[in-house]
């Protein structure tokens, strides 16, 4: 396993006067599952968009395999081996499931036949075998989100960035998603997940990075992070935090 596959080095992103990300640094090793959490407006999606180059950060570096990618374009990033999904699904709704995955597969397989074969293989892996010829827009939300991952997976990335994959899913679907993520890691992928659904991310993440108001306030294993005072304060406010300090009962 390669250490420091992706290094986020002092990233700052400003929108006018608003500091969405402020001097954020961390690194990711190959084969890790990293959770990126934080309250609404903490700057998670901004950071995500900086890594995938949909935004260019104002300062700082992002090193992927030793190359600075912070000034590149989204398509170049994908070609280098970083795939992503979107918070609001961006599948090609009027195309079939197979065609959606083929668009991803075309990156490494220029011929239609090869891309179809690769897409079918990917579809099997993601449980779309029966749904290949359905229009993507007709799928359920959870299927659409999974399709987006399948599509990104078909580009054969090294890192997958998943933006709120579990939002809006029911408990059963969350469980299926975590299984899927573990399966992807088993295949040698490194995963970064922006997530609000704690019961989804906490059991599977190797490390969790917590953002609040654009700052990184904590980093560590899920157990370390949930007991971190700053994190509790960020999520529940100072008042609750003070009350809880008096009371030693663990937070459920």
């Amino acid at each position: 396993m390669k250490k420091d596959l992706l290094i986020i080095d002092n990233i700052t992103k400003r929108f006018g006067g608003l500091l969405a990300n402020q001097n954020i640094s961390f690194s990711i090793d190959e084969g890790e599952i990293i959770g990126l959490i934080g309250p609404n407006g903490a700057g998670k999606s901004t950071l995500f968009n900086c890594i995938s180059c949909y935004y260019n950060s104002n300062s700082g570096k992002i090193l992927f395999n030793g190359t600075d990618i912070s000034r590149k374009t989204p398509e170049a990033i994908c070609q280098m081996g970083i795939g992503r999904t979107f918070q609001l699904v961006r599948i090609f709704k009027e195309m079939t499931v197979l065609e959606n995955i083929m668009i991803g597969a075309f990156l490494k397989h220029a011929k239609q036949g090869d891309a179809t074969a690769k897409a079918e293989e990917t579809a099997n892996l993601f449980g779309f075998t029966e749904k290949l010829s359905l229009e993507a827009g007709s799928l359920t939300i959870s299927d659409q989100k999974r399709l987006e991952v399948a599509r990104a997976f078909a580009t054969e990335p090294k890192i997958l960035l998943l933006d709120e994959m579990m939002a809006g899913l029911n408990i059963q679907e969350v469980r299926e998603t975590t299984d899927l993520i573990l399966k992807l890691r088993g295949m040698g992928l490194t995963l970064v997940l922006v997530e609000h659904v704690m019961e989804g991310i906490m059991p599977i993440a190797n490390r969790v990075i917590v953002l609040d108001y654009g700052l990184k306030i904590a980093e560590g294993t899920p157990e370390e992070v949930v007991n971190n005072e700053k994190v509790i304060e960020a999520y529940f406010g100072k008042k609750y935090h003070a009350k809880r300090r008096g009371n030693t009962a663990p937070l459920q």
Binding site: Y54, T73, P74, G83, F86, R90, F92, I103, T155
Partner: peptide, 8 residues
């Protein structure tokens, strides 16, 4: 935007 994320 979705297309760009797939390297297009």
């Amino acid at each position: 935007d979705g297309a760009r994320s797939l390297g297009i």
